[in-house]
């Protein structure tokens, strides 16, 4: 369970998050939807302890991310890029991450298998395509077999087969009882994958509920989203 309460953050003199509050529940895929620059990544980075909030709390199963010992065994996160130094091979990258969290080195090959990178395990991360980098990032998130998954724009850079694979993967993770929180600016994708939807616009949560609740009264999630973002002068 992810619990976010009153999360507020400033960048310089601008307030970029205004008391963001929502939940992501186990066994469900929660879609965090918003235009570029709405505060999705900022919220996720606060949740992961990478940045500091001005106010509010973000908890994973009742504790801040940084309070967990061996955090990768609880939470797996995918942010921008592969997260691997470009001169390291995928396998070497996964091995040091595994070692640091007390996981067996053999986990590296297991997660490479899951994301379909076994054949490229010995290739340097800097040589990876965008899609392969995303898969390596996901492999890193899966190392500790975590019960919470936090994924920032996971389908960015994936080809159609990769997108279909990711959709199936996320559904399966939720079916296994995991908490899945993914951000996206692609409404069609979220409408296919998410059980619950949180819409954030200009740093404020404007809608929060099950997919059916958020869409209610609109022909599609896209229409619901546009109705919520009307007048915000979105950049895309």
């Amino acid at each position: 369970m992810i619990t976010i309460d009153g999360l507020t953050r400033d960048r310089g003199k601008t307030r970029i998050l205004h008391e963001v509050t929502f939940r992501a529940r186990p066994g469900r895929v929660t879609g965090f939807l918003g235009p570029n620059g709405a505060g999705k990544t900022s919220t996720l980075r606060l949740l992961l302890g990478l940045d500091r909030p001005r106010a509010g709390t973000a908890l994973i199963d009742g504790r801040p991310y940084a309070a967990w010992d061996r955090p990768l065994t609880v939470t797996g996160a995918l942010l921008d890029g592969s997260g691997a130094h470009r001169s390291r091979t995928a396998r070497a990258h996964l091995r040091w991450v595994a070692t640091g969290n007390g996981l067996p080195r053999s986990r590296a090959d297991e997660v490479l298998e899951i994301v379909g990178l076994t054949a490229d395990a010995g290739k340097r991360a800097g040589k990876y395509s965008l899609g392969m980098s995303r898969r390596l990032g996901l492999a890193t998130a899966l190392l500790g077999d975590p019960r919470v998954l936090i994924l920032d724009e996971p389908i960015n850079g994936l080809d159609p087969a990769g997108i279909r694979w990711m959709r199936g993967f996320l559904r399966e993770a939720a079916a296994e009882g995991r908490t899945v929180l993914l951000s996206s600016h692609l409404m069609g994708e979220l409408a296919e994958t998410a059980d619950d939807v949180v819409i954030i616009v200009a740093g404020r949560v404007v809608a929060d509920g099950t997919l059916a609740e958020v869409v209610a009264g609109h022909p599609s999630l896209e229409d619901a989203f546009l109705a919520h973002t009307a007048g915000e002068g979105t950049s895309w």
Binding site: Y65, G81, H85, G100, Y128, S133
Partner: peptide, 26 residues
């Protein structure tokens, strides 16, 4: 410095330090 090298040209903001701090937030 290796922590702060951009991981690829596709994602200029992405660096290994993110992975490092996710693996050990203390």
């Amino acid at each position: 410095s290796s922590e702060y090298t951009p991981t690829s040209d596709d994602a200029p903001g992405a660096r290994q330090i993110t992975t490092t701090l996710l693996a050990e937030p203390r």
